[in-house]
Write a protein that binds this DNA or RNA. Structure first.
Length: 289
DNA sequence: CCGGCTGCCTGTCGGC
DNA sequence: TGCCGACAGGCAGCCG
């Protein structure tokens, strides 16, 4: 459930359930899920046994469990990852990759991932940049910019940054080092709201337009979060296996040949960056070169 | 720095 | 019915 609102739905569900609990045992059922943990599955499981979980945090599409010992378990859902809290007796899901059991609960935490682009990694926590507080962040997440839901997010840093870039606006929205959390769906929704074509050059954005773009991105993700995220099918669910409802709130993404909510023209699909981009040909015309 | 491309995986869907 | 290609919400890395 890969973009910011969906990851935040998972973080909230996990925080509520797992905070304060102590890990009993960890089983790595598919080694690819911990491919970024060099010492391997045995070491991964060994480091986590008997550890108490203090908090669940997130930046962009990355979330992590903070352990009392000062390390973190970074979780990335990739394209199809889920974290499910389930009764141990339940018939195991076909794609469970990592299983956590706890000393203070009969339920398990299962990392389920059909396409195995997601995974977990144990990481040191280091001080977060440009913050005077004692905020810490996993060192494997340092390269990810703050997202718009972060209390330390600086709008001007994003606005100046995107205007300095010499690229297309959709590419910039997907660039997790400029601002994190936006993926293909919310990029298309943001561009539709801003009436911008995906190829619009970032260096032609005025300060006001860049600020507008940011406010649309923030608004659409806020609305999606309030609806429990966007789900098209059972691959994208919260920790209880439930889908969100924002798919019905989408104005552009996945709506090829449907009417634009604003002008009534048919939404079209373009291939861009080896993926689909949906736009209204009238509201979001191709920029003049 | 930028843009185009590839690889990493499994599954579903539509066309022939 | 089966085969085959296109496509799916992400990201890192390589090359020119």
């Amino acid at each position: 459930m890969p973009e910011l609102p969906e990851v935040e739905v998972v973080r909230r569900g996990l925080a509520k359930w797992v905070t304060g609990k102590t890990v009993a045992q960890v089983s790595v059922l598919h080694p690819r899920a911990i491919r970024n943990h060099a010492p391997g599955p045995k070491d991964f499981a060994g480091q986590l046994a008997n550890q108490k979980i203090e908090a669940v945090n997130r930046r962009g599409k990355y979330l992590w469990l903070e352990l009392k010992s000062g390390i973190a378990v970074v979780i990335h859902l990739g394209m199809s990852g889920q974290v499910l809290i389930q009764k141990a007796a339940l018939a195991p899901h076909k794609h469970v990759r990592i299983k956590f059991t706890f000393k203070d609960s009969k339920k398990e935490m299962n990392f389920v991932d059909q396409r195995t682009f997601g995974g977990m990694q144990i990481t040191e926590l280091v001080p977060a940049s440009s913050s005077s507080s004692s905020e810490v962040i996993p060192d494997t997440v340092i390269h990810i910019a703050r997202d718009p839901f972060d209390p330390h997010f600086e709008p001007d840093t994003f606005i100046d940054g995107i205007r300095r870039k010499n690229t297309e606006v959709k590419r910039a929205l997907l660039d997790q080092t400029l601002m994190s959390g936006v993926g293909n769906i919310y990029a298309d929704e943001t561009l539709w709201r801003a009436k911008l074509h995906w190829a619009y050059p970032t260096n032609r954005l005025t300060r006001a337009k860049a600020a507008e773009l940011l406010s649309h991105a923030t608004a659409v993700m806020t609305e999606a979060l309030a609806q429990g995220g966007t789900s098209f099918d059972s691959l994208y669910v919260n920790v209880n296996g439930e889908s969100g409802y924002f798919a019905r709130g989408l104005a552009a993404y996945g709506r090829e040949d449907e009417l634009c909510d604003r002008c009534g023209r048919l939404i079209i699909r373009d291939a861009f960056m080896n993926r689909s981009s949906f736009r209204c040909p009238s509201c979001q015309p191709k920029p003049r070169s």
